[in-house]
Design a binder for these strands. Structure first.
Lengths: 302, 302
DNA sequence: CACATTGATAGACAAAGGTTATCAACCGAG
DNA sequence: CTCGGTTGATAACCTTTGTCTATCAATGTG
């Protein structure tokens, strides 16, 4: 049995007339006759009772008609679903991300992506860079978001820069420093500085320490909080300042402003890279990177 | 796209290897290659990523695999369903019956039929004989159960005798007449006789009147009740006797016994006929008549 | 490096679907 | 009742296409 048999059968059942059905199908009536007969032989059941003046369905034919319609409909559905998946408009995408760094930028980007591709189910998987590359290799994630220059990537991966941004000083809008267009890192030596730490050695807190250390700036001990949310709350309340990508927003928004850092240096420029397995990029993954790059433009810069 | 493409695709997806899949399908590997390629072209989506050492599914392929399996399963299901319907093991059967006459006999017969053909949905449609024949003609019912000799049927119908039984006198088991092996109709002239009447002119009550009248027997007025249930209750309670097919049982059972009628005559012999449209007999209908006939034997006679 | 394995390709062949021409059966109008 | 006009079935021919064998390039393995 082939789908052709089902298509022909449904056409005959719909017109109750071989000749008209053959016309609709753009085949000759004998061809149709033969196919229906073959179908009946294959099933071992008569589907139509032939009278001059047309045909009527047997009970077996009526039963088979329902199912045949259903099958054809499902084939149609399967086709469009496969095409949608091919085009990256449907499917599942697991994105590995670095918790703190990407969070502020990713939230609106994900929203934009979901709006454009509602049939895609995106899952976020936060993990350190090394774990992400391993996850990429075995196919547990399709896209990894990491920081740092592309040159540092092992071979076998392709990448695209999703975001390149100078980091900035985050202060409450009522803060004394908020009145200044730009701020020197030196000036933070007397400020209360807050950083995120998960207890590890490579978190936000440690990264800020490194920035100060590279310039020989002595500073007050950096207060550590356990999450970005807490940090934003502290900064928004004027209880401290921090150094962040200027995309991070507090919940209530508008209470935090970013100010340019007067110093320069590669370590003040953050590259957010989308990474995927070389040659293993699905259209879905490409669409995702596309949307991320578009968001970079829309969100603007400091 | 044909079912062949789906079958081949599923086979490849299951083995992840063209050669082994081709083996399972009993076709050559190039034939399989071509069909898969045709499928991919038809879908406009790549289904496999070919590596030496085997193939892996693309996301589109994974999506399509689920649906393809589903489609093939449904085709399988549709086939068995059509075959079951053809064989009369599944489907819908509407049986027209004469309320009073067939009720007692039909209940156990229906139970037997449902037990043997659980996938068949039987509907009972009670109506007078003339309505039943009309319903048969237009296909509203597939089988009609009527009384009387087959000769009285209009042409265009076939029939089979499902039951031929002498009617009998129904009395309560404690009734004086219950002690007798057979009873003359004459003896009922002094009894309280009960009959079913729906107000029409062709009911059970009128039929009994006719039996008495044909033999010139004067009798006390026949008490009319509006249903078989009521009649059985009255008889079981010893408040009267009646003339019935000896298949009728009261709810509680055992309290009513049937006694042979001493007189003879064609009007004491009831024929229950199954009637169907000539040539329009489905296997389902034949099975139904078959079961009914078998029940006749099992239920025995007076 | 030789060898075995993978899937893809080319050409030949046969099965099978499609076409045209024609048939018997039936219905309805004249 | 006969005569078109309809129904679906059949036969013979043609064309498409699914399949086969033989072979290839690419890749992994001893």
């Amino acid at each position: 049995m082939e789908l052709r048999h089902l298509r022909y059968f449904v056409a005959v059942a719909e017109t109750m007339n071989y000749r008209r059905a053959a016309e609709h199908l753009h085949v000759s009536q004998p061809a149709l006759s033969k196919q229906i007969k073959d179908l009946e032989n294959d099933l071992g059941a008569q589907l139509f009772i032939r009278n001059t003046g047309g045909v009527v369905l047997t009970p077996a034919g009526a039963s088979f008609l329902e199912d045949a319609r259903d099958v054809l409909e499902r084939v149609e559905f399967a086709t469009t679903a496969a095409r949608a998946t091919e085009a990256g408009r449907a499917g599942r995408l697991v994105v590995g991300s670095l918790g703190g760094v990407s969070a502020g930028f990713l939230a609106p980007a994900l929203a934009a992506f979901s709006a454009e591709f509602p049939q895609v189910e995106v899952t976020l998987h936060e993990a350190p860079v090394s774990d992400q590359l391993q996850a990429l290799r075995v196919g547990r994630i399709q896209i990894a978001l990491t920081t740092g220059p592309a040159t540092a990537l092992p071979s076998g991966f392709d990448s695209a820069e999703v975001l390149a941004s100078r980091i900035a000083v985050a202060v409450a809008c009522e803060h004394r420093l908020a009145a200044r267009p730009s701020i020197s890192l030196m000036e933070l030596s007397t400020e209360s500085v807050v950083g995120v730490s998960d207890g590890g050695r490579a978190g936000h807190q440690q990264w800020m320490e490194g920035i100060f250390a590279a310039r020989g700036i002595r500073h007050r001990p950096i207060k550590a909080v356990n999450g970005l949310e807490s940090l934003m709350a502290l900064v928004a309340g004027g209880h401290g300042v921090s150094i962040l990508l200027p995309y991070m927003r507090a919940r209530g928004d508008n209470t935090i402003v970013y100010r340019r850092i007067k110093e320069s240096g590669d370590d003040l420029l953050v590259h957010l890279m989308a990474v995927w397995r070389k040659g293993g990029g699905s259209q879905l993954a490409r669409n995702f990177v596309e949307v991320l790059s578009a968001c970079r433009v829309k969100q603007g810069r400091i």
